[in-house]
C-alpha cells in the first residue's frame, strides 16, 4: 500500500513537472518564435486601412449592399458571427436545410438577375463548416460581377479583371480548390471606386 501511495505522489509530481515544460515553456517558445518570424500571421492576418483594422484576410465579415461581393451563407451564431464559429450541422434530408437552400437560391437569382436555367455554384447557397469562410468559388464571384459593376457604375470587364487578380489557384497545383478572397476583392474594388472618382 505504501508503494501505491509513493506511486500516487510520483504521479502528482509528474503532472506538475511535465505541465511546466509542455504547457509553459513549449507554448511560450512557440509564441516568441512565431512573433519574431511571422508577426502578421501569428496576430490574425489583420488588414488595416488608414490605421483602422477592417478585418482579417482569413475571416470574411458580412458585406452589406449590392456594391460588395457577398461571402457564403453562414450558420455561425446568428449569421457570420466570428465569435461563434460553426456549421449548420443539418443532415442531407433535413427540411430546414432544403428550405434554407431554396430560399438562398431564390434570393441569389433575384439579386444577380439570373434566370431559373442558370446552375448555381454550390458554395453560393450552402453554409460553410466554420461559418466564416473567407472565400467564394470563382464561378460564384463571376455570377455576382454584373450586379457589383452596375451598383458601382464600373465596366463589368474591369470587375471581372479584379476577380482574376484576387483568385488563388490550387496550392502546388493539386491541393485544395481555386478560390476568391472576398475581403481582398472588395477592398480592391473600393480602391478602384475611390480612384475613379
Amino acid at each position: 500500500m505504501t508503494n501505491g501511495l509513493a506511486e500516487l505522489r510520483r504521479s502528482v509530481l509528474a503532472v506538475a513537472a511535465l505541465a511546466v515544460i509542455l504547457c509553459g515553456l513549449y507554448p511560450l517558445a512557440a509564441w516568441v518564435a512565431a512573433q519574431v518570424l511571422f508577426p502578421g500571421r501569428a496576430n490574425g492576418s489583420l488588414r488595416t486601412t488608414n490605421g483602422i483594422v477592417v478585418g482579417s484576410d482569413l475571416i470574411a465579415p458580412r458585406f452589406l449592399g449590392p456594391a460588395y461581393f457577398h461571402p457564403r451563407p453562414s450558420a455561425a451564431g446568428d449569421g457570420r458571427d466570428a465569435g461563434r464559429s460553426g456549421g449548420s450541422n443539418l443532415g442531407p434530408l433535413s427540411r430546414g436545410l432544403v428550405e434554407a437552400v431554396a430560399r438562398r437560391a431564390a434570393d441569389y437569382r433575384a439579386e444577380n438577375g439570373l434566370g431559373a436555367g442558370t446552375p448555381l455554384p454550390a458554395d453560393a447557397v450552402t453554409a460553410s463548416g466554420s461559418g466564416l469562410d473567407p472565400h467564394i468559388s470563382p464561378e460564384n464571384a463571376r455570377l455576382q460581377a454584373g450586379r457589383v459593376a452596375r451598383a458601382r457604375g464600373l465596366a463589368e470587364a474591369s470587375v471581372i479583371a479584379l476577380i482574376g487578380a484576387s483568385t488563388e489557384g490550387r496550392t502546388l497545383g493539386v491541393l485544395g480548390e481555386p478560390r476568391v478572397n472576398v475581403l481582398e476583392l472588395n477592398l480592391a474594388l473600393d480602391g478602384v471606386s475611390r480612384g475613379g472618382r
Binding site: 456549421g87 437552400v101 454550390a122 468559388s137
Partner: peptide
C-alpha cells in the same frame, strides 16, 4: 434534394465544407 433546386451538380455536397478545401 439540393440539385433539384438548381445547384450545379459539379459542386458536390458543400454544406458544412470550406471553399479552400473543397
Amino acid at each position: 434534394r439540393l440539385r433539384t433546386l438548381g445547384l450545379d451538380p459539379r459542386g458536390g455536397s458543400m454544406e458544412g465544407k470550406e471553399v479552400r478545401f473543397g
